[in-house]
Nucleic acid binder design. Structure first.
Lengths: 157, 157
DNA sequence: ATTATATTAAGGTCAAAGAAGGTCAAAAAT
DNA sequence: ATTTTTGACCTTCTTTGACCTTAATATAAT
């Protein structure tokens, strides 16, 4: 018997194929459909639709809430994927971060303007706190922004 | 699926656009039109037309009462300067930061893409560290990015 | 005609209920 | 031992309704 999680995974991937890599779903509805606990949907998303696997997830609670899944264009974003999975890690110096941003710009993954903005967010000065935590925070922010760039890109088809 | 509050928000914003940023409406009439509780109008106003978000509301009860909504169209640089000098300060919550970014986008001070990127840099998740320092760091980063937007702009003239 | 009172027509507040999604750990299955 | 499934509990956002306050107008009393 195929594991339910696998079935749900396939189901979502089919939907994604039919909708050009972008879709919105209702967690409870889906759980209902498969007669499983709602949290199983989260499990599927966490184990099969992670960033490393090339997916980006946004959600909103409350009435009219939703879960939005974006399939990132992996081929086109090879370098950025590498950055997210290994290239950055938990800590990164100001210099390294600036270099990475410059390279993304050179490769035309991002515009000059975006590069400028990203740089502004990862400088020592921006992050403030004079502590060893700074490099960790920087890494986290940089990763978040790179993810955003990718998600934005695949969003407008 | 679409949240009623969102529909009402859009409705009001459209009216505002058509009337040069100033309009008067009848709470009960609007509630009637959307077939909702009158207090839902207040909810929409409170959550989407706050001062922070650039709107000012006046109202009057009793016969001939009304709700007047004004969109505050401050000069772009004025607003950003205000943000830098007083609006943000040393600490800012995730929600407030997102609101400010949304407003800058609404008023077309920044593009949707830039807004998306900026948001990604100031979320709790991006900043990581679970500590009271987070709001300080966020304020600092947000200020830095706003400065960058301004600088970028004045650079290409 | 003037003043006091009642009625009606607005809008305001707040808390409870409802409608999502999130987290985490225990139990079950492989 | 690892992965999957389930369920209890949490957080966030929205919707609804009961009750309150204020203003204008109509009516009654002086």
């Amino acid at each position: 018997m195929a594991r339910l999680s696998d079935v749900i995974e396939e189901f979502i991937k089919t939907l994604l194929r039919e909708s050009e890599g972008q879709l919105e779903l209702q967690r409870n509805e889906l759980a209902d459909y498969f007669e499983c606990a709602p949290s199983q949907i989260n499990y599927v998303l966490a184990t099969r639709f992670s960033l490393d696997q090339g997916y980006y997830i946004e959600s909103r609670r409350g009435g009219g809430g939703y879960i939005r899944i974006l399939r990132l264009d992996v081929d086109r974003n090879d370098y950025m994927h590498y950055l997210l999975s290994e290239g950055i890690g938990n800590r990164i110096s100001e210099n390294n971060a600036l270099q990475i941003i410059k390279r993304m710009m050179d490769q035309e993954y991002i515009t000059q303007e975006t590069a400028y903005l990203m740089k502004s967010a990862v400088t020592d000065k921006a992050i403030g706190i004079p502590s060893s935590l700074r490099d960790n925070i920087r890494a986290s922010i940089l990763r978040s922004m790179i993810t955003a760039v990718m998600a934005w890109d695949s969003r407008k088809t």
